[in-house]
Write a protein that binds this DNA or RNA. Structure first.
Lengths: 202, 202
DNA sequence: ACCTGAACACCGTTCAAGT
DNA sequence: ACCTGAACACCGTTCAAGT
């Protein structure tokens, strides 16, 4: 690839490994991710990655962490220009999340598989909390405005999150016939709003 | 384990491989599933499995297929004594599905990962259709009774399925704090019913 | 028909040794 | 501090040969 004579590696092997790992994950799937092939791609010996990641799992953890950081960043950004009403803020968040899931299907899968690993690192657990806090805040604000039914936020928010998580997974893994996926998201958002409706309405 | 002198294998190696594979999947997770270890566990040579499954993927496909068969069986059974109303039938189906997901978390994961593989076999695709037909029938019957809003069944059913799939995944992978999981399912079912409510009500 | 044993090309991980 | 090269114990897959 790059023909300069290299004594060791050109600079930041750690970052290069993560970048290349994500490319491979996206292009060839998680099964094709091998430390040795990564090292080969980057022109270092197969043992070199171990200086930066104690084992393969540590690299996957680090990769998942970058995913959570990017996800929370776009989700937070989605709330900025979204407007005031619960309907508009929910719409923005859901479309952003599903968009991220479509664009990063394999990465999101990795993120979830690591999240429910009991040995997940602290920084990683913290990253997932930042994201669930966003949902909690969205629901809480909606309740404060009288646009969402009363009740403990986790209980009101849980079905919303379940539907969001489920639809994003279906869409990202290509399990929806394309003509369903076309307007499916509109349908899901309307469904969520009906589910959130205050008790005096339904 | 069994001490009888065996010339080759005791009988049905194919079935024994599938049974042992599911045990390993359940106890040690998908990463620990190796053809060679399976063969060792069953006391045959490492090449023996290839007589029954052309490669590892073929064994996983067969395992997923048994999963789909058992899943559709319990789901169909759930509808028998469920009662007449849409609410009761939905309740029965959702609880049965989530129960299956909890009891077979790793297997269900495998089933989904294979389902969205473009090279999925015909019998496997057919098995997944039997299950989506069940959801379609549930929604269609609800509409006929005037208990579910009008519209194309796929469009009405999609958010229900998304929420079901999403909640089952959260519950099965242990991502719900136990005090949330306690009453979470009731909350999700009520949410689904509000989402399905006819247009003249909401 | 069903299984074995050896062979091949891959892994992840470890560790002395090099620069 | 960072990387190499050899070594070890695993994989999946294939194929001649055995019963």
């Amino acid at each position: 690839m790059h023909t300069r004579t290299r004594r060791y590696h050109h600079g930041d092997l750690r970052a290069a490994l993560l970048t290349r790992a994500e490319e491979t994950l996206r292009e060839k799937g998680p099964a094709a991710l091998s430390l040795r092939e990564l090292a080969r791609d980057l022109g270092v010996s197969h043992a070199a990655p171990s200086r930066h990641f104690k084992d393969k799992q540590a690299l996957l953890d680090a990769l998942a962490l970058t995913g959570f950081e990017r996800l929370t960043a776009v989700l937070e950004a989605s709330q900025d220009g979204a407007g005031e009403t619960f309907a508009k803020r929910l719409d923005a968040m859901v479309r952003t999340y599903v968009g991220f899931a479509r664009d990063n299907a394999e990465l999101l899968d990795l993120m979830y598989s690591i999240k429910h690993d009991p040995a997940a690192s602290d920084v990683l657990v913290e990253a997932t909390h930042r994201w669930s806090d966003l949902v909690v805040r969205l629901i809480g604000d909606g309740q404060a405005r009288g646009e969402v039914r009363e009740g403990p936020v986790e209980r009101v928010g849980l079905p919303v999150f379940a539907a969001l998580h489920g639809y994003a997974d279906l869409a990202a893994t290509g399990m929806l016939p394309s003509e369903v996926d076309e307007h499916g998201l509109d349908e899901v958002i309307a469904f969520m709003l009906r589910g959130c409706v205050p008790r005096d309405v339904l």
